[in-house]
Amino acid sequence: MTNRPNYIAWIRERVGHELIFLNFAGGIICNEDEEVLLQRRGDSGAWGFPGGAMELGESAEETAIREIYEETGLIVKVERLIGVYTKYVHHYPGGDQAQSIMFFFQCTPVSGELVTDGDETLELKFFPKNELPQLFVKQHEDAYNDWRSGEFGVCR
C-alpha cells in the first residue's frame, strides 16, 4: 500500500468536487464532572465532536485516537463503539461533496492538556450534557443522542 499523507487532497486532485465516500472517526469525551468536550471548528466556526478523516492504512480506532490528539491535545482511551453513521452527505464550503462514513467512539481522557491551534480548532470547551450548543452536522447530533440514550453498536 502506498503511503499518502493526505488522502483527501490526493483523491480530490483526481475527482474534483464530485460526490465521494470519505471515512471519519471521532469521539465523545467526558471529564470527571460528566461534561462533554466539544470543538469549535476553524472551517465553519461551529461546534462538534473532535475527530477527522482516516488516512490509508489506519483503523477507525487509530484514526479517532490520532485525530482527537491533533485537535485537542488529549490522549484518549477508546472505551466502546457508539455507532457507525453512514447515510449523511456533507457539502463543504469549497464545493466538495462527500457521503461521510463516521465511526463514533466513547472515549476517556488518559493524559494531555487541552490545546487549540487557532486554525483547525478555534476553541475547546466542556459542556454539561443537557446544555450543548447546536452541533454542526446531523451525524454528530445522531451519535450524541444515541450515546445519551445508551444505544451502542448503532448503524445508521
Score class of each variant (00 low, 15 high):
Met1Glu: 15
Thr2Asn: 06
Asn3His: 13
Pro5Phe: 14
Ala9Tyr: 15
Ala9His: 15
Ile11Arg: 11
Arg12Asn: 14
Arg14Ser: 11
Arg14Gln: 13
Val15Met: 06
Leu22Asp: 05
Leu22Val: 11
Asn23Met: 12
Asn23Gln: 07
Ala25Gln: 06
Gly26Asp: 07
Gly27Val: 02
Gly27Asp: 05
Ile29Gln: 01
Cys30Leu: 12
Asn31Glu: 02
Asn31Trp: 03
Glu32Phe: 13
Glu32Tyr: 02
Glu32Cys: 06
Glu35Gly: 01
Val36Phe: 03
Leu37Lys: 00
Gln39Leu: 13
Gln39His: 10
Gln39Ser: 01
Arg40Gln: 15
Arg40Val: 02
Arg41Phe: 10
Gly42Ile: 06
Gly42Cys: 09
Gly42Pro: 12
Gly42Leu: 05
Ser44Pro: 12
Gly45Ala: 15
Gly45Trp: 01
Phe49Asn: 01
Pro50Asp: 07
Gly52Val: 14
Ala53Arg: 06
Met54Ala: 12
Glu55Leu: 10
Ala60Trp: 06
Ala60Val: 08
Ala60Lys: 02
Glu61Ser: 07
Ala64Leu: 05
Ile65Ala: 10
Ile65Cys: 06
Ile68Lys: 10
Glu70Ala: 02
Gly73Ser: 12
Gly73Trp: 09
Lys77Ser: 01
Val78Ala: 04
Arg80Pro: 05
Ile82Met: 02
Gly83Tyr: 08
Gly83Glu: 04
Tyr85Cys: 01
Tyr85Met: 03
Lys87Trp: 03
Tyr88Cys: 00
Tyr88Thr: 11
His90Phe: 12
Gly94Leu: 09
Gln97Asp: 02
Gln97His: 00
Ala98Tyr: 08
Gln99Ser: 08
Gln99His: 03
Ile101Lys: 04
Met102Ala: 00
Met102Thr: 08
Phe103Cys: 00
Phe103His: 10
Phe103Thr: 10
Phe104Tyr: 11
Gln106Phe: 09
Thr108Pro: 00
Pro109Glu: 14
Pro109His: 09
Pro109Tyr: 09
Gly112Asn: 07
Leu114Ile: 14
Thr116Ala: 13
Asp117Leu: 10
Asp119Arg: 10
Asp119Pro: 00
Glu120Phe: 14
Glu120Asn: 11
Thr121Gln: 03
Pro128Lys: 14
Asn130Thr: 15
Leu132His: 08
Gln134Ile: 08
Phe136Asn: 05
Phe136Val: 10
Val137Thr: 05
Val137His: 00
Lys138Val: 04
Gln139Glu: 00
Gln139Val: 13
His140Tyr: 12
His140Gln: 05
Glu141Tyr: 07
Glu141Ala: 00
Asp142Ser: 06
Ala143Met: 08
Ala143Leu: 00
Tyr144Glu: 03
Asp146Cys: 08
Arg148Tyr: 03
Arg148His: 00
Ser149Arg: 15
Gly150His: 01
Phe152His: 07
Gly153Tyr: 11
